[in-house]
Computed example of a mutant assay.
Amino acid sequence: MTTSPVRWGILGAANFAKTTMGPAIHAATSAELAAVASSSAEKVAGFAAFAPGVRHHESYEGMLNDPDIDAIYVPLPNHLHVEWGIKALEAGKSVLIEKPVGMDVAEIDRLIAARDAAGLLAAEAYMIVHHPQWQRAKALLADGTIGKLVHVNGAFSFFNNDTGNIRNQAASGGGGLRDIGVYVLGGVRFVTGQEPVQLDYARVQWEHGVDTFADMGFAFEGFTYQAYTSIRSAPRQEMHFHGEKGLMTLTCPFNAGKFDQAELHLSMPDQTVRIERFPVVNQYVQQVEAFGRAIRTGETYAWPLEQAQGTQMMMDQVLAQG
């Protein structure tokens, strides 16, 4: 049985949409990058360079009213995600919203209600769960390869002190946790399938209302967790799952193929180390294809809004205590 391609529209001509998600939509099977909504024809021309024939909508409303669009990708500033996600659903479009999907748990409640009322798919663009590196980590933990989990720790950092950058603007929902904290927090929840029991501590550094560094610890049932994020440090990203029988390390867990090659290292008590490599997977393409299958065939989507809300709950606690 063949299914028609999902016709995508992008709400706004953000640079990330042009360099990463737009090309991923164009490259994905059973997907078509059909239109981009922007007040700038010049910016839309950047999408046409790799997706000839992409249509230009001069307004977001024009995009939402287009009957030839099936799904909307929302890469707008963080504080606009839920507003335009709900509008897309009310217009009859499934919607993939860039992370973080909301500014707090209550906002995601509103989005879930809109999703349920529309009977359509709405999800956070949380691409790592579609990457085989993370799926493999989840499977290895579940089958007892590293034994009972004792501790998880993670780190994600890069340097950006540009006050003109949206990540450093509080009014637009900037900050390190919202930008990259979703990964260290959501990653532990995805692999373990558990939710935290309590927040043990949070130490947050702030500049002009934006968190630039966050060190956090949570207690889970049976294991402890620690991670930090920073947008004022040299680039680093790692996740470690430490069990009674072995240590599982993801050396490039978040920007696979960009920061470095995605690898999974298994260190065992006999001092052997097994390395699994994932050199050619584009997790953004995988995400688009999974979203399309969920729309067309009803396949279960790996990261529903309830999952995004669990991560948001952790972020809300850290930001409130820090």
Rank of each mutant, 00 (worst) to 15 (best):
I166Q: 01
E90D: 14
A49P: 11
H265D: 04
Q307S: 13
S94H: 14
D200H: 05
L33S: 07
H208P: 07
H57I: 10
A114C: 07
A290Y: 01
D109C: 09
R55C: 04
M315V: 05
A31R: 08
Q169I: 13
A219Y: 01
T224W: 06
D211S: 15
E244N: 01
L121M: 09
G217T: 11
G181N: 01
H26F: 09
A290P: 00
R110T: 03
P23T: 09
V204C: 03
L111A: 02
F190P: 06
I69M: 02
S39E: 10
E90T: 12
P52Q: 11
I72W: 06
S40E: 03
T224M: 08
Q169T: 08
V95H: 02
E98A: 13
S94Y: 05
L185F: 14
I295H: 14
L177Y: 08
A41E: 15
T19L: 15
A91E: 10
L247K: 00
G22N: 02
S94V: 07
K245D: 15
R110D: 10
A51E: 12
P77C: 01
P132R: 11
D116N: 15
P196L: 08
G102L: 13
I146Q: 02
G102D: 09
T19M: 14
D260C: 09
G193Y: 02
K87V: 07
Q307P: 01
T192H: 03
T192V: 04
H208G: 12
S30Y: 08
G22A: 01
E289K: 06
Q287P: 04
L177M: 15
G12I: 04
A170F: 05
L247H: 12
Y73H: 14
Q287C: 14
G92R: 14
E289I: 06
M21F: 15
T249D: 01
R277F: 02
D200M: 11
T297K: 11
R274L: 02
L64F: 14
V36W: 10
Q205C: 05
G310P: 05
G9V: 02
V318R: 04
I72L: 14
E195R: 01
G144W: 10
E244M: 07
A88L: 11
H130P: 05
M63F: 09
L11K: 06
L250V: 04
S30M: 11
Y301K: 08
R293S: 09
I108H: 03
I231D: 00
D109S: 11
T163F: 11
V191Y: 06
R178T: 08
Q135E: 13
E289Y: 05
Y225K: 07
A27Y: 00
V281K: 07
P253L: 02
L76H: 04
L250T: 03
E42D: 14
A71M: 11
E276W: 05
D66Y: 05
G175Q: 12
A137Y: 09
A302L: 15
S230H: 10
K93E: 05
A117G: 09
M239C: 05
R189M: 14
S30H: 15
S40W: 10
Q226M: 06
L199H: 06
A219C: 00
Y183M: 04
I180F: 07
G144I: 08
F223T: 12
S40F: 09
S267M: 00
F223C: 08
E207D: 13
K99L: 11
R110P: 00
G222D: 12
A256S: 13
T300A: 15
I295D: 12
G62F: 04
